[in-house]
Write a protein that binds this DNA or RNA. Sequence first.
DNA 1: CTATTAATGTGGATGCTGACAACATGCTAT
DNA 2: ATAGCATGTTGTCAGCATCCACATTAATAG
Lengths: 208, 208
Amino acid sequence: MSVAYDVLNDDDTYHHGNLRDELIDTAVDVIGREGVAALSLRALARDLGVSHSAPTRHFKNKAELLSAIMEEAYEDMLTTTVDAGYLAGDNPVHRLRAMARACMRWHVDNRALSEVIRNPDVSRTAGRNVKEVLAAFYIHSSRAILGAQGQSRNPDRPVEFVYLSMIVSVVGAASVLTDPVYVETLPALDADELIDDMVDHLFPLKDG
Amino acid sequence: MSVAYDVLNDDDTYHHGNLRDELIDTAVDVIGREGVAALSLRALARDLGVSHSAPTRHFKNKAELLSAIMEEAYEDMLTTTVDAGYLAGDNPVHRLRAMARACMRWHVDNRALSEVIRNPDVSRTAGRNVKEVLAAFYIHSSRAILGAQGQSRNPDRPVEFVYLSMIVSVVGAASVLTDPVYVETLPALDADELIDDMVDHLFPLKDG
DNA sequence: CTATTAATGTGGATGCTGACAACATGCTAT
DNA sequence: ATAGCATGTTGTCAGCATCCACATTAATAG
């Protein structure tokens, strides 16, 4: 009894074919433009020309969609950061600096994803996957930190604290650099300069 | 004791008497327990034993309520930080350290308020008031930073960058210390220790 | 002290959203 | 071919934000 459909969509197949991925993509799009609060499963479905409850097949609810985005985001952040470390060569200090810089840049370059993983309402739903990624992140980072400490950078500061300083700086920079209030309040806030400045003070090139 | 209770119990007055303030209070309560996403004007109205559209008289919509909370939060954060600076005495380094520590503590001690002012969906609605508070915050901070630089702390680093480092550390620490994922992932994460450690590295007591 | 007005709270209506259930379609393997 | 499964559709319901007309109280002017 589906003649009505053919009138509505001429060349459309019944199945969308790639709904899950496109849901995530357009969701990230919407978040980047209007924020997490503006996200609506029904609006997403409309945008993709699909019935209002089609997303249910892929994400039981809104929290699950955001959770999936968070997982992908964390994985992307991890690989980006670790890759930058390896590309930086063998000098431990250079490697650590490259990792910190890459991680900060990732947040600035992926505003929407960063906003999602920094959202408490989302991170409250984090599962084992996310925690494993963060554990891996900690391992990679602490290895690099130990290497840099071998070159007399903060040699007697506990590794966990150095790691936390890095994370805190990254997350804080992401918050400040993407927050419209700070961006408007502070004159000439250039992301690259701030990132360089912070990395220099976290892990200085010269001995301190 | 409070008027609200009498209204709830038997002495049914038509007017609530203090609805605006109690809306804010219980909203902060809810946010602290369940997060911003769980906030609902109707649920607030129910909790306060008032009709579902009574809040409209005080806040046109949810965004306006959150905006009001943000304003109060910023003001509270400013005065707490500035007061701590004055109480720390005349030594500029001590003063700056006290301010940074107080600001971090404020975020940790006021999880819900901190969550609100770090929420991009909320800060997008920030008005002149909030921006003026932040401008005042910058003035107070940069004065303290200039004083500390007179004692050879980061003497040739631009004031704005030192200020931003402080803000970034504060905001980042707030994010990390209140994020369940990080709290669970990292072993024995003590807020006080981390704050002390970060303040020591931001504004060291000894010359560096 | 009273009458008028502004502030505050009520109740109902509408439209959007999340969530669930029953049904339809197309792919794949046997 | 056909059974089973993944995917998409329609229908429905409850919760919520928001708007509106109306009721009650508080404040104030005369």
